[in-house]
Simulated assay, not measured.
Amino acid sequence: MLIHFIHPGSAYLPELAAYGDFLAALGHSAQVHSRPASVPADAVICWWMCGRVPHDAARRLSHAFHIHEYASASVPPWPKVKDRAKRALQPVPQYRLFQNTWVRDRLGFSDGVPYEFRDMGVEPSFLAPCARRAAPEFDGVYLGDMQRLRQFVPLLTALQQAGQRTLLIGEPPVDLCKTLHTLGHVTGRVPHGQVPTLLRRARYGLNLVPDQLPYSQQTSTKLIEYCAAGLPVVSTDYDWVRAFEARHGARFAYLPIPDMAGCVVPDVSTLAWPRVLERLALWRRLGLCP
C-alpha cells in the first residue's frame, strides 16, 4: 500500500520521516507531496497535514480514503478566526488525527467523523546511549523555531550578562540573525541526525515557549528531545509543561530564576516514534496491520 502525505506548508514536520519508516517496517510505503496536484488520480489513501484542504483536490480524489491530521491549532494572528474557518470550510474526511484533546476541542468539529490522538514523538537516535563531555562547552542550548525567540531576546541578553554561554541550533530569520549571533553560538540549519550530539554539548536545554495560546497547550517537541538526550530542562512556565512534568515524574527548573539543584530528567523512551505510532488504531482501520 502506498500512502500519499500532502504537506504544502514550509514547517518542518519530523513525523513525516517517522511515518515513512514505520510504514516501511510494515511492508508499505509513503510519498510526500508539497502540491495536491502531484497526487496521482488513482491514490487510495490521502493523508493531509492540515492546513487548508482545497475542495477541488478533494473532489478530484473523492474515491480515496482521506485523513486530516491537526498537529496544532491555528497560530496568531487571528487564530480563532482561522480555526472557525477550518471547521466551516474544510472538506469532510473519513478520519481525523489531533495532537491532543485541547486541539480537538479548539477546532470544534462536530460532524461525527472518527478521530483519535497522536502526540509528538522523538527519533530513537536521541535515546541512544552516548558519553557526555566531562566539561560541556555551553551552559544552555535552544533547539527549534528561532522566529519564536523574538520575545526572548531580553532573556538571552540576561543569560549572556550572567556569564551563561548559549548554543542556538537552527537557522535564525534574517532580521534576527545579527542579534542572535551576538547572544549565542548559532549553528545554522543542521541535519537532524547531528542534533543529539549537539545537544549534549550543553549542560541544560532551554524550553522557551510563550504562555500564549495555542503554544501553551501543545506539545513542545524540543523539550522531549532534551529529555531523550539526558539534559535537565530550564523552561518558561505554562500549562502544558507543568502537565508533562507531572505525568512523567519529571522535575524542571523554571525561569526567571531557575533552581537546577533538584532537576529530574524523565524516561521518555515510550515517546520514541515507533512506539507512538504503533499505538494508532488507524493502521487497523486502513488494513495495514493485523
Score class of each variant (00 low, 15 high):
residue 28 H to C: 10
residue 144 G to L: 02
residue 183 L to Q: 03
residue 127 L to A: 13
residue 111 D to W: 02
residue 246 A to E: 13
residue 32 V to W: 01
residue 64 A to T: 00
residue 13 L to H: 07
residue 33 H to M: 06
residue 115 Y to A: 08
residue 60 R to W: 00
residue 244 F to I: 13
residue 159 L to E: 07
residue 129 P to I: 11
residue 160 Q to D: 08
residue 157 T to S: 15
residue 75 V to S: 09
residue 211 D to W: 10
residue 105 D to Q: 15
residue 155 L to H: 08
residue 178 K to R: 15
residue 60 R to P: 00
residue 41 A to K: 05
residue 90 Q to A: 15
residue 102 W to L: 10
residue 265 V to N: 01
residue 167 L to D: 13
residue 77 P to Q: 05
residue 54 P to T: 00
residue 28 H to M: 06
residue 154 P to R: 07
residue 117 F to Q: 06
residue 240 W to R: 14
residue 19 Y to T: 00
residue 217 Q to H: 15
residue 261 A to E: 01
residue 111 D to G: 08
residue 240 W to N: 08
residue 191 P to D: 14
residue 182 T to V: 08
residue 41 A to S: 10
residue 236 T to C: 05
residue 136 P to G: 06
residue 176 L to F: 01
residue 126 F to A: 11
residue 84 R to Y: 03
residue 275 R to P: 01
residue 125 S to A: 15
residue 279 R to V: 00
residue 151 Q to I: 04
residue 14 P to W: 11
residue 170 G to K: 08
residue 87 R to H: 07
residue 136 P to D: 14
residue 230 G to D: 06
residue 20 G to E: 14
residue 257 I to G: 04
residue 41 A to F: 02
residue 91 P to Y: 10
residue 144 G to N: 08
residue 271 L to H: 04
residue 78 W to G: 00
residue 235 S to N: 08
residue 130 C to F: 13
residue 201 R to L: 14
residue 130 C to S: 14
residue 138 F to M: 07
residue 179 T to P: 02
residue 42 D to H: 14
residue 76 P to M: 05
residue 116 E to Q: 15
residue 60 R to H: 03
residue 129 P to A: 13
residue 237 D to W: 09
residue 50 C to M: 13
residue 5 F to S: 09
residue 238 Y to K: 12
residue 223 L to Y: 05
residue 241 V to R: 10
residue 270 T to E: 15
